[in-house]
Design a protein around this nucleic acid. Structure first.
Lengths: 254, 254
DNA sequence: CCAAAAGTGTTACGATTACACCCATGG
DNA sequence: CCATGGGTGTAATCGTAACACTTTTGG
């Protein structure tokens, strides 16, 4: 079998939870339904999950939006390559999590020469506000632009993976600031999951699993008043599985 | 940056649950502890998860055992390639499930030229008994031989993934025969998970989730007597997620 | 003193485990 | 008629969702 030259590239869906001003006086009505799901967070802003994209200035597919990524170098592995490519778009220090998703290898996924893409999920904390190159921007996942090649599929995979891991790991540490109140954490979960979660129960679940730890400090209330909120932090700074078994647990210590 | 030639290969850990005769009269005592976990299935055989390996006849690493796999062709994607490579070892029709795990891309994972490996998990049902080439054999995961390069890591990943998916998907369909009794299914789960599961509860969990369906038929009891067992089948023949959320479920229909 | 935000307590429910008990068959 | 495997019933447990209620603050 003949083998022509093949390029290997990384392709990363970088997510951040971002607060957008609610466009009250905009042209369209306050139609904020977006699939009937609305987050009742602060009244004048909505919090949404966003992806980092750059716009192609040249053909092929000029004008469509692409995920950051690029060609694998000779003396790096894919993780390092993804980090290196990302450094051109966001400060690498801001990247709090990076994990492999899957490989896209259809021979005709892009015009030749053939490119095999390893897809990644990357996360950036709420508080980070990296400088972006002029061709690059955050796009809310609820309103994605025309995307290049199979990049839309990568984003969908990444969202699914993130939502799943929010449920059984401490992965939210990579989306949250160092210190936070439960309301902030709730906003993050709502945005990343795409549905409402109850603050009370969130606190209880994460506390019992020792995913979060109270710092003892409290945050001053906003100008509307209200009781000061307790400040928490994530117990671990690395990914940890917290609820391994959905069912069929190993037998107890009988 | 210069780019020298890089090969892309697939690498598949194919698992099958297999029954081994219990070596009573063997040289060593009936020491069947294997980490304290023993399956109390049929008294004269033990049921174990096994991987398909072939022995390298040439250097590098002559004599070590490798996972089946090989170089990606120009006009196939990785899934097709893995299937094609496997056809040399087992009949492809026997392969009931194939899924991507992750990519191994360390520049020095094998001697040059560089090879990037996409790891796969493959499954073969209990009943299949494929003809194997002379250099190829099933190895119980509890007693793996010296393995080539990073192939041991692939096997470990694959086992972990399999165990996790047994808990929240219907993936056992790929390990079980078309029709089976609950005892057989229990054997399969025990072997694949590495710990005991209760037949009663297994039946209930899988029934409520509609993973298995009773066929109405019953199986004749063995020579020791006993009540005839009901025969079941898997409801779906493709992979299906049956218990998506470990916690943080979406709000109910309130 | 009232509204707003945060935290606590309580109940209900669903899923799962563990285990005792009843059924059918071969010797 | 009894040992052996198979199936059913049930109580105890655990984790979570839902929601009402109390606490603390600013205006």
């Amino acid at each position: 079998m003949a083998h022509s030259s093949t390029i290997h590239e990384s392709l990363t869906a970088v997510f951040q939870v971002r607060r957008y001003p609610r466009d009250i006086a905009a042209g369209h009505a306050p139609a904020d339904r977006a699939e009937g799901m609305l987050l009742r967070c602060p009244p004048d802003q909505r919090t949404e999950l966003a992806v980092l994209l750059w716009e192609r200035a040249l053909d092929p597919q000029k004008g469509t939006w692409s995920l950051p990524g690029g060609r694998l170098g000779d003396d790096e592995d894919l993780d390092a390559s993804a980090r290196r490519q990302l450094a051109e778009k966001v400060d690498v220090r801001e990247l709090s999590h990076l994990e492999q998703l899957s490989v896209f290898s259809a021979p005709d996924r892009v015009p030749s020469p053939r490119r095999i893409a390893s897809a990644y999920l990357g996360l950036v904390p709420l508080t980070a506000d990296p400088q972006l190159p002029p061709d690059t921007a955050w796009h809310p996942v609820s309103a994605l632009p025309d995307m290049s090649f199979d990049h839309r599929t990568v984003v969908d995979h990444a969202r699914t993976r993130l939502a799943a891991k929010l449920s059984y790991t401490n992965i939210a540490f990579a989306l949250a600031p160092d210190r936070f109140t439960m309301s902030t954490l709730r906003e993050i979960y709502c945005a990343a999951l795409g549905y409402d979660v109850d603050t009370t129960n969130l606190q209880r679940v994460l506390s019992r699993r020792k995913v979060i730890t109270p710092t003892g400090a409290t945050a001053a209330p906003g100008r509307a008043g209200g009781r000061p909120a307790a400040v928490y932090r994530f117990t671990d700074s690395g990914l940890r599985v917290t609820d391994e078994f959905a069912a069929l647990r190993p037998p107890g210590p009988s």
